[in-house]
Design a protein around this nucleic acid. Structure first.
Length: 733
DNA sequence: AGGTTAGTAATTTTT
DNA sequence: TTACTAACCT
């Protein structure tokens, strides 16, 4: 290939170009934040095709999100000047599902197997545990769910779980329960998300013939976000790459933030060992952020031990800019006011609100900011909240569709058999399950038998018969009238829409809208099963992205995004880094929290505000907190401190002290002399307490006020009984 | 069968 | 504080 550089290569910097043009053998591209990772990936894809190395269908390109897959598809198409078809380009799960459908019978499934979502999984596992006589109070199903998922993440079928990998959950019954759960899935012709990769990997591991077919098929493999792969995904990739060894993984060890979901940062750390002779290319030229922002992020992440090492340098000439600002505040309300005020200022200065984001550690933190933004009249959107396909009414409707198409889908049938209320209670359901067990048939067949027996009262029996007739009618109508028409018919004739019409709650109208939207969405698909597959794998979240709005989201949800202005509130010990995370994972988790902080800072193009509050309301009561150690780890020369001085914290590595102070204009005028976090007084002492209110007393605990006389209160304490106390000794809760 | 209440637990969630 | 679940009452 000694032709003059094609246009698409000329646009790359030398390191990017190396990443694109190193085509043979294993390649790891360490792509720092904002270094043009997507460009490299898509250009490489296009380059493979344009250089005549292979055909489109001979490339396996894997992403984690549908969004990333879509983006890659579009950008490759743009470079090639035409849409590309017949690609093996998609998420790990979508690609695994596609493979599994081809070989379903080898995994004990039919090719039309159902993919269960988290909710179905949980219900199924609970049933299995209940059936095995497990004490569900002592051993919550969620606990076992997590254990099983970790096993699946590690490529462990029940047979492969060794003593060393076993869990002491439910007195050592976990593996047996796992086996029972898998057996039940097979019976239902279903699999969960973890199974998609587990089954396929197991197949590739044990069947050379099948493995050989894929070796012949895939000439090149491309992997995005490699730092987030779990063990089974790694095994799957390694098996597929074994023969030709043309695997290119792109990722950033400093942005590995999903270990709690099974991701193993070790995958990327030991790439060179796993793939001998690998080339490593580092992308360190950052085109996104100003120099101070990069310096702050780099200084922070340098405190991590377990990393390959990489330093972001400004790739733009205009990369000077304001320092990262660290703001100290009295309490979380003041913090919300500060952020709101700053956003108003930014807006006045012409910054678009769609270029402003507030990134928090945990979902519940968004609330305080939402309230503040509402007060100020600033439009916002919360990214990653309840997703469309996870809403109750949508899931119910989906269950109706599933039960129509798949008569054996017990989970779907059970979900809606008494929704709307048809008078079927525990007795009827127990009878149905008993019949299903006796005849080894689906619940739907059992229900059929039940309507022919005298086991339940006439009223529920008639209602059940009507439902079953409905299913028969609807599935017959599918062919004739088309899935969109029938979908609407199902929701109407089942009484489901009517149920929400009768509902007086304020959400009812919205739910009816969602049902309409769902039926509309069906029209984008060729058939009902195609739609169900799409929803199971894609779970698209149509955010109301349009319009100028401040974005509110968790740090996790922000990975891969960028904004001109970024606010990072709540940098306090216990909250960020999260105490829970530290308790569970120790030093390793601390490093992951630090990576999360790094992800947060590197989202910012122009301005970045870190803040912490001395007092925060947690589960209703005020708690004092100290600044996050991460604040002390920011390189002091690259940040500017604002607000009340803080003493150096014991745990601070830098030992730096807040400089400056008293320039905020946001700080509440009190307690000027004392460092904010030494003060024991609660921000809201118990003013005007009325009869009937619940209060807390240091000595007597919680109680309810039964009478008020001047400053004296009669309180019925929950533990200590009735007492008379002075109002200043209690606080409202 | 279904609604009410008391008790309990509480991050992050690409598919 | 809220949200969810499991016993409890009607």
């Amino acid at each position: 290939m000694s032709l003059p550089s094609p246009d698409y290569l000329a646009k790359l910097n030398p390191e990017q170009r190396a990443a694109v043009e190193t085509l043979d053998g294993p390649l790891l591209v360490l792509a720092g934040a904002g270094t043009g990772k997507t460009r490299v990936l898509t250009t490489r894809f296009a380059h493979l095709l344009l250089s005549g190395r292979c055909q489109p269908h001979q490339i396996l390109a894997v992403t984690f999100t549908n969004k990333a897959a879509r983006e890659m598809r579009e950008r490759v198409g743009a470079i090639l000047g035409r849409p590309v078809e017949g690609l093996w380009l998609g998420t790990f799960h979508a690609l695994a599902a596609r493979m599994l459908r081809r070989h379903a019978e080898m995994a004990g499934l039919r090719s039309d197997f159902t993919i269960l979502d988290a909710d179905d999984q949980a219900r199924l596992l609970k049933q299995v545990m209940d059936g095995a006589g497990v004490d569900l109070k002592r051993w919550p199903p969620n606990g076992l769910m997590a254990v099983i998922q970790r096993w699946k993440d590690r490529g462990l079928t029940p047979e492969r779980v060794t003593a060393a990998e076993a869990s002491d959950y439910a007195n050592g019954r976990a593996v047996a329960l796992y086996g029972a759960y898998q057996a039940r899935l097979k019976q239902l012709n279903a699999c969960d998300f973890g199974d998609l990769l587990l089954h396929v990997t197991e197949l590739l591991r044990t069947d050379e013939e099948v493995l050989g077919r894929y070796h012949r098929l895939f000439h090149y493999i491309l992997v995005d976000e490699y730092q987030d792969t779990n063990l089974v995904q790694y095994l799957w990739l390694r098996l597929l790459a074994q023969a030709r060894k043309n695997i290119c993984c792109v990722g950033d060890d400093d942005q590995s933030i999903y270990s709690w979901r099974g991701a193993e940062i070790e995958n990327i750390l030991r790439f060179e060992k796993d793939f001998p002779g690998a080339t490593i290319v580092r992308l360190e030229s950052n085109y996104r952020s100003t120099r101070p922002i990069l310096a702050a992020a780099s200084g922070l992440i340098a405190k991590n031990e377990g990393r390959l090492g990489k330093t972001l340098r400004p790739g733009r000439n205009d990369a000077h800019g304001e320092k990262v600002r660290v703001v100290s505040l009295w309490d979380s309300e003041e913090e919300a006011r500060m952020v709101g005020g700053r956003i108003e200022e930014a807006k006045r200065d012409g910054v678009s609100l769609s270029e402003v984001a507030i990134l928090v550690r945990a979902g519940f933190q968004t609330r305080a900011f939402e309230e503040r933004l509402i007060t100020l009249g600033l439009p916002y959107r919360v990214v990653g909240g309840a997703k469309f396909y996870e809403r109750q009414e949508v899931r119910d409707a989906m269950a109706y569709f599933r039960a129509t198409v798949q008569p054996a889908d017990d989970l779907a049938f059970e979900r809606i058999v008494n929704v709307p209320k048809r008078g079927l209670g525990d007795t009827a359901m127990a009878a149905m399950h008993r019949l299903a067990r006796e005849h080894r048939c689906s619940l739907r067949e059992a229900a059929q038998r039940l309507t022919e027996s005298q086991d339940i009262r006439p009223r529920p029996r008639a209602a059940l018969r009507e439902l079953l007739e409905g299913f028969a009618r609807w599935s017959a109508a599918l062919e004739r009238d088309g899935h969109v028409v029938v979908a609407a018919q199902i929701l109407d004739e089942s009484g489901y829409t009517e149920m929400w019409r009768q509902d007086k709650s304020p959400e009812a109208a919205g739910r009816l809208d969602n049902l309409k939207e769902l039926v509309r969405a069906l029209s984008d698909f060729a058939s009902m099963p195609a739609f169900l597959e799409h929803v199971a794998l894609v779970m698209e979240n149509d955010e109301n992205a349009e319009g100028e709005r401040v974005s509110l989201m968790t740090l996790h949800a922000a990975k891969g995004l960028e904004f001109d202005w970024v606010f990072l509130p709540g940098w306090e010990e216990g909250l960020f880094p999260s105490q829970r995370s530290l308790d569970e994972g120790g030093a390793k988790s601390l490093e992951e929290e630090r990576r999360l902080a790094y992800v947060g800072i590197t989202r910012a193009r122009k301005r970045c505000f870190v803040s912490h509050a001395a007092n925060r309301r947690i589960y209703g009561n005020w708690t004092a907190s100290i600044p996050s150690r991460f604040i002390g780890e920011l390189p002091p020369d690259e940040v500017e401190f604002e607000g009340e001085q803080a003493r150096a914290q014991p745990g601070w590595s830098g030992g730096s002290v807040f400089a400056g102070g008293a320039l905020t204009g946001y700080r509440a005028p009190r307690l000027i002399d004392a460092p904010a976090w030494e003060v024991q007084e609660r921000p809201k002492p118990g003013a005007s307490i009325a009869v009937g209110e619940r209060v807390f007393h240091q000595k007597f605990g919680y109680g309810r006020v039964t009478a008020v006389e001047d400053d004296k209160l009669d309180i019925a304490f929950e533990k200590a009984g009735p007492k008379r106390v002075l109002d200043r000794f209690v606080e409202k809760v």
